[in-house]
């Protein structure tokens, strides 16, 4: 599964089937983001939505690019109660980088890809940190940097799962 290449742009007439896994995965990621967790592990919650958006931007960059990322980011902002546009901006920048370099990233070996995702999530968190700094909101450092680690650890799992899904969608269409 890990070595499978789900990159082929899916040319399906059935748009619903094509978009369904993407929409579902985003909803699941949002739900995981809102899931109440005990305080101790709360700060380690991975950036599910960012990981999902990175995956789809990497595999289907034509359909799921910065626009979708921005809209999802706004929804994230509302559900987190952060400044409207904060997550949208961070997600947009990260997805831009992925789409811009998707051809390069697709040929990365798994380990290198995970390292790249680590860097992308670090950038994402840094943007959030930066915006908070400008807005005068202070939070302990672990809040920003713990998710970078857990997100990178979970990336192979998400990649494997979603590769299977997008492969099956290709088969059906």
């Amino acid at each position: 599964m890990w070595t499978m290449q789900p990159w082929t742009v899916m040319m399906s007439n059935d748009r619903a089937i094509r978009h369904l896994p993407v929409i579902l995965s985003i909803i699941v990621a949002l739900a995981l983001t809102m899931l109440p967790l005990p305080r101790v592990i709360e700060v380690f919650r991975p950036n599910w939505v960012a990981l999902i958006m990175i995956f789809w931007a990497l595999s289907v960059p034509r359909s799921y690019s910065v626009g979708i990322a921005w809209v999802v980011g706004i929804v994230l902002d509302v559900s987190h109660g952060t400044l409207l546009g904060q997550y949208a901006l961070a997600l947009c920048v990260v997805v831009y980088i992925v789409v811009r370099f998707h051809l390069l990233m697709r040929v990365f070996p798994p380990l290198q890809l995970t390292a790249t995702v680590f860097a992308l999530i670090a950038l994402y968190q840094f943007l959030l940190f930066w915006i908070n700094g400008v807005a005068g909101i202070t939070a302990p450092a672990i809040v920003y940097w713990a998710p970078v680690l857990t997100s990178a650890i979970l990336w192979p799992l998400i990649f494997t799962l979603l590769s299977g899904v997008s492969f099956r969608v290709q088969m059906r269409s």
Partner: peptide, 18 residues
Amino acid sequence: LGLRTLVLMFLSILLMFL
């Protein structure tokens, strides 16, 4: 792509400001 990203970034900053 770059243009769209720039516009969206600008929009985000505007939203945050407001």
